[in-house]
Design a protein around this nucleic acid. Structure first.
Lengths: 201, 201
DNA sequence: CGGCACCCCTGACACTTGTCACGGTCGGGT
DNA sequence: ACCCGACCGTGACAAGTGTCAGGGGTGCCG
């Protein structure tokens, strides 16, 4: 029996996936959480063979949760299961030690397939997504540019960002300008959009 | 037997929900589509009692698909099933003739409950969401303000928006200014964000 | 008919933004 | 020691943006 831990913020899809996986003869869902912060605790309690993590969750990010889980329970293998096939997500998932990456556009059979393959020691990655990830490359943004860009995400002004990051107005403008240049955008809003699409946020 | 048609762009959750519903003794999933444009055609072919529609889909919007479905097959009852509990979505769903509104944060049992209730002629609405919908009120934006705002969504400049809508620069600025005032925002980007959160897009 | 709301445009103004040039600090690598 | 990149700041300038005061047009409704 493959012991599986499910983490997804939407209770409906979490429950549905749990019943789908539970119908398989060799798979057993031993735990479900809807919050990134609860992942490690639940894993310690249930000792799963495979953890299925969504990227966007309340509390801790699914990718950082994967990293923490990897250090806490090295034997537990991780599959990242997300709605968006952002190239940067895949890169970060692999860096965090994930063994599989599945997008929710794929049919459910592919998920149980991935669970089995990962449990037997293989890696599972969507080939088209892997190609796109290589093409897009890794994020060219510096840490500060990421900070400034994600602070600008909600439509804040330069002054707001400067205050929230304890920086000067001019510095914020410089980081924004640099980020705009690197993303190939013409506006700060466009830079935010492009960076999010590529998973550079 | 209650005949159900499923429409959701994510194949994985669509398939998972289908198996969950199929496990119920009195429910039968007679069709699945992943595109808003295919909803009406599939409904004509399968003659479902209940149609379960997601809001965001490629092609036609789930809400407008509900309206078209309502005119094509008046006997078919519609449930809107969405990730986001935007207040405006509920209002528009009801205006489109939907009989139920379920958010994906709810547990799966609530979905099969909703299918049964709606099939028996009742309406199903999340009470907390209904209250919020009334509190937020209906959209104060004019048609043109909506156009301009959604054209600004991707980070375009005023000149870009003006060109794409065949308007003058000044006119675009006026509409944006008015929309900013109505949403209580301080920036165009913030106005876009707030309008989306409230389902005014 | 006279309001009224919405649409479209103009022009002008203050402010914010994006860009550039410049100087300075700190850590890592050859 | 040297260079290089990332970081922080200043100052200044052109472009873009948000706001205001106008004027004209349409269609709807009391």
């Amino acid at each position: 029996m493959i012991r599986v831990l499910l983490a997804d913020d939407q209770a409906m899809v979490r429950g549905a996936l749990a019943t789908v996986l539970g119908l398989e003869a060799d798979i057993e869902v031993v735990g479900q959480v809807g919050n990134g912060d609860e992942v490690v605790a639940a894993a310690k309690e249930t000792a799963p063979d495979v953890a299925l993590l969504d990227v966007q969750m309340p509390g801790m990010d699914g990718l950082t949760a994967a990293a923490e889980l990897k250090t806490a329970l090295p034997a537990c293998r991780v599959i990242i299961c997300t709605t968006f096939g952002r190239p940067g997500y895949l890169a970060r998932a692999m860096a965090a030690g994930a063994a599989g990456f599945v997008v929710k556009d794929a049919p459910p059979e592919q998920l149980v397939e991935a669970v089995r393959r990962v449990h037997s020691g293989l890696r599972v990655v969507d080939p088209a997504l892997a190609a796109e990830s290589l093409a897009t490359g890794t994020s060219p943004l510096t840490a500060r540019e990421r900070d400034v860009l994600s602070a600008a995400k909600d439509g804040s002004t330069v002054a707001d960002i400067a205050k929230s990051l304890f920086l000067s107005d001019g510095t914020v403008r410089n980081h924004l300008s640099s980020a705009i240049g690197k993303t190939g955008a013409r506006t700060r809003a466009e830079a935010v959009r492009l960076s999010e699409e590529r998973g550079w946020l």
